[in-house]
C-alpha cells in the first residue's frame, strides 16, 4: 500500500468515525484507535496521538456549530477542568510506563463501558432545591430559558463529581480519548446537571482536557503528520456533517448498531492486547 492509498482510505474511515461519533454522541476517538490499530496495524502510540487530535477536532468542530442551541455552564466546566486537566497530566505521565498491550486492554474496557452508557435509558434529574453549600459557594447553580420561562437548577454531590472527573482525565490522558461517557456519568447521574447544560459543557471540557495531554504527546512524537492529517480532516468534516443531520435523524437505532460494533471492537482490542499483538 502506498502513502497515497493509505491516506485516502484513512480519510474515508476517519470521516465515518467523525460522522458516527457525532450522531451517537460518543466522539470520534473511540473509533479512530481500533480503526488504526486493528485495521491498519498502526502502533497504538501513533493511534493515541491521532485520536487526541480527533477528540479536539470533534469538540471544537461541534462547539462552533452548536453555539446558539446549548447552554454551556462555563463555571461548572471550568471548575471541573481543574480535575480533568490534572488527571490528564497524570495519565500522560503514566502512559510512558504502561505497556502498549495493557493500554489496549484498558481501552477495550472503556469501549464496553461507553457502549453501555450510550444505550442506557436517559432520565433527567432536575434538582429544584439547594442541597449543596459547596455548589453555592462555587456558584455552580444556574438557569436556562425555555418556552415556559426560566428554569433554575441546582447541582449536588460536587466532590463526587470532581473525583469522577479526575478519573475521566486520567483515562483521557492515558488512552487519548475524550472519555465522554465518564463525563456524562459524572455530570448527569452524580451531579444532576440537566441535559441541556451537560451536553455542551461536557463537549467544551473534552477539547480542553485533550489539549492538556496533546501538548505532552506532541513532544513525545506520538502525533505524526502522516496519520494526524487524514484523521483530523476526516473527523472534522464527518463531525460537521453529523451535526447537520443530527437535527432530523432518529438516532436510537443507529446508537444500538453502533454499540454492538463498539463491543465487537472492544473484544478485539482486549484479545490483541492480551496476546501481545498490539
Amino acid at each position: 500500500m502506498s502513502i497515497l492509498v493509505f491516506t485516502l482510505i484513512l480519510l474515508v474511515g476517519a470521516f465515518a468515525a467523525g460522522l458516527l461519533g457525532s450522531l451517537t454522541g460518543l466522539g470520534g476517538g473511540v473509533v479512530v484507535i481500533p480503526l488504526l490499530t486493528l485495521g491498519f496495524h498502526v502502533d497504538i502510540r501513533y493511534a493515541i496521538g491521532a485520536s487526541l487530535v480527533a477528540s479536539i477536532a470533534t469538540s471544537s468542530g461541534a462547539a462552533s456549530a452548536y453555539v446558539k442551541e446549548g447552554i454551556t455552564n462555563i463555571r461548572i466546566g471550568m471548575f471541573l477542568e481543574i480535575a480533568t486537566t490534572t488527571g490528564a497530566v497524570i495519565g500522560a505521565l503514566l502512559a510512558a510506563y504502561v505497556a502498549p498491550g495493557i493500554v489496549a486492554v484498558l481501552f477495550g474496557f472503556v469501549l464496553i463501558f461507553s457502549a453501555i452508557m450510550s444505550l442506557r435509558k436517559k432520565t433527567e434529574h432536575l434538582e429544584l432545591s439547594d442541597t449543596s453549600p459547596l455548589a453555592q459557594k462555587l456558584k455552580l447553580n444556574g438557569s436556562y430559558p425555555t418556552a415556559e420561562g426560566k428554569v433554575s437548577y441546582y447541582i449536588r454531590k460536587v466532590p463526587g463529581g470532581y473525583i469522577l472527573m479526575t478519573i475521566a482525565g486520567v483515562i483521557s490522558g492515558l488512552l487519548g480519548i475524550g472519555s465522554g461517557a465518564l463525563k456524562v456519568l459524572a455530570m448527569d447521574v452524580v451531579m444532576h446537571i440537566p441535559f441541556k447544560v451537560s451536553t455542551t459543557t461536557s463537549n467544551f471540557m473534552i477539547g480542553v482536557t485533550a489539549a492538556a495531554s496533546a501538548v505532552v504527546y506532541l513532544q513525545r512524537g506520538y502525533i505524526d503528520p502522516g496519520i494526524a492529517m487524514p484523521v483530523m480532516l476526516g473527523v472534522l468534516i464527518g463531525a460537521m456533517s453529523g451535526s447537520k443531520i443530527l437535527v432530523k435523524a432518529n438516532t436510537h437505532k443507529l446508537r444500538q448498531i453502533f454499540a454492538v460494533v463498539i463491543v465487537f471492537l472492544a473484544f478485539e482490542m482486549i484479545y490483541n492486547g492480551l496476546t501481545g499483538k498490539i
Binding site: S2, I3, D43, Y46, Q219, D224, P225, G226, P230
Partner: peptide, 28 residues
C-alpha cells in the same frame, strides 16, 4: 501541507507498525 506532503511522498510506503515517533523537528 497535505498537498505538498502527498506531492513528494505519495508513492512511498507508510511505516507505522513500528513506533519510531515523529521526526524530532516536528515535536516542538
Amino acid at each position: 501541507g497535505a498537498l505538498i506532503y502527498l506531492f513528494h511522498n505519495a508513492g512511498g510506503k507508510p511505516e507505522y507498525h513500528v513506533f519510531k515517533g515523529a521526526d524530532l523537528s516536528l515535536r516542538h
